[in-house]
Design a protein around this nucleic acid. Sequence first.
DNA 1: GTTTTGATTAGGTAATTACCAAATTGAATA
DNA 2: TATTCAATTTGGTAATTACCTAATCAAAAC
Lengths: 130, 130
Amino acid sequence: MDKLLVLKALADDSRMKLLALLLERTYCVRALAWKLQLSEATVSQHLKVLREAGLLVGEKRGYFMHYEVQCGVLHEMARELEALTEIRRVVCSPEIGGCPLAEQGEGHTRHILKETRKKHCPYPADNIKQ
Amino acid sequence: MDKLLVLKALADDSRMKLLALLLERTYCVRALAWKLQLSEATVSQHLKVLREAGLLVGEKRGYFMHYEVQCGVLHEMARELEALTEIRRVVCSPEIGGCPLAEQGEGHTRHILKETRKKHCPYPADNIKQ
DNA sequence: GTTTTGATTAGGTAATTACCAAATTGAATA
DNA sequence: TATTCAATTTGGTAATTACCTAATCAAAAC
């Protein structure tokens, strides 16, 4: 799953409406266009974006396309957002083993010298350039 | 929470990276710009988008801004995606009480007459216009 | 085989977005 | 009070996107 592609697909009002409609039942493109007050071409393009993100799978039945929402991708995406929140903050605690940032070679150690900056920005100006 | 605003904010690679970085710890804008190889102005604008979506809250401490990721909004967003998947399909089942779509005045009843279309598109062409 | 018809693609436009350099802001310090 | 400096805003550009109409495609019906 391409996380970014899915988010971009979801980040549009018309496409969210299409998903919601297609979750409820099957609609032909003309019906979707009518519901959203858009041209069929525009709807078709939105459906393509959703398809390319993996959120829809289409199948032609008779005259009409039948689109099915891939709930699995929605679940996966939700899980990805949850996973983000699980990132824990790195904190300096000299008492119990020093500062994990000091070893990263990211210029953090310098701050220990400059007290005023230590508390504020782990990347002071004179440490970033170059 | 403006769902669409949050999705739009998340649907960008740079902004996702900013969130991930800021979840781990505080960075000054210059540090973020350096990490992402973007100008400080650009990063500042991305931070604004994230702020306006409610994903970040900033506080000035000394010279520097301290941004905090609002995990609550991420959780909410994840929950919204889950909620989407909970939409259940409406199905016609004449045996147990007829067709729930027939009463919606959406032109569904007509399909019962046109057998070939009934199975495919609930909105045939001649039923949509106007 | 030709016609019909739902869906897609092509071509073009207006609006939005991502980016940068330069100017501005405003809190902290000297 | 004046200066410093991180962050933001402004102004401008190139790329992307959402939308339309018209043309094309492909399956079904005749």
